[in-house]
């Protein structure tokens, strides 16, 4: 019980803040609750398939296969798969991190996992369609092509800034989490 409260302490504090807002400014508080509820429903409807696929990926895909597809020597294919996996996903970016953890555990190259996260955040296919319908095709296509080199650049810079020790720490870290 104590562990449970400790894990959810930030959430509980935030709920308390929302209740205070609700008492002081009922309309703002109510609006906030409505938005939170709508987003929660959205999240819960999008997320289950992601985690099911994550579980299946973990159980069925051999480490050797993953190394071949996205590992150190995967080259252009690895980058392509990383972009594809990230873009073909659905759901908020924070759902990408557990998946990224599994990819790392299975022996993917660090840069490819970073590209995967970048793609997940900005070049998701369903999101692009949605973006086109609310902002117009011109806006969407321009942003898409400007963001792709950005994603690769961020991945390469991050990779180069981390030394071996730090990378090992990240690998060990994801191992304990997953």
């Amino acid at each position: 019980m104590k562990i449970l409260i400790n894990r959810y302490k930030y959430f509980l504090v935030l709920v308390a803040i929302n209740i205070v807002i609700n008492i002081l400014f009922p309309s703002v508080g109510q609006k906030s609750l409505d938005i939170t509820w709508a987003n929660t429903v959205d999240m819960l409807s999008v997320i289950p398939p992601i985690f099911i696929l994550l579980g299946l990926l973990d159980v069925w895909v051999q480490r050797e296969t993953m190394i071949k597809l996205m590992g150190e020597k995967s080259g252009f294919l690895g980058v392509f798969i990383a972009f594809f996996l990230g873009s073909a996903s659905a759901g908020p970016l924070y759902a990408a991190f557990p998946v990224a953890g599994v990819l790392l555990q299975k022996g993917s190259k660090f840069t490819n996992v970073l590209i995967f996260i970048g793609a997940w955040s900005t070049t998701k296919i369903p999101m692009l369609l949605f973006e086109a319908s609310s902002m117009g095709w011109k806006f969407m296509i321009t942003r898409f092509f400007i963001n792709i080199p950005g994603i690769v650049l961020i991945a390469l810079i991050t990779e180069n800034l981390l030394n071996e020790k730090e990378k090992k720490y990240i690998y060990d870290n994801t191992a304990s989490l997953n």
Binding site: Y8, I17, N18, I21, I35, T36, T40, P92
Partner: peptide
């Protein structure tokens, strides 16, 4: 826990 916290923060912020 992080998911839920983020959802509440987004809600408050947008409101």
């Amino acid at each position: 826990p992080q998911f839920l916290s983020i959802l509440v923060i987004i809600g408050i912020m947008l409101a």
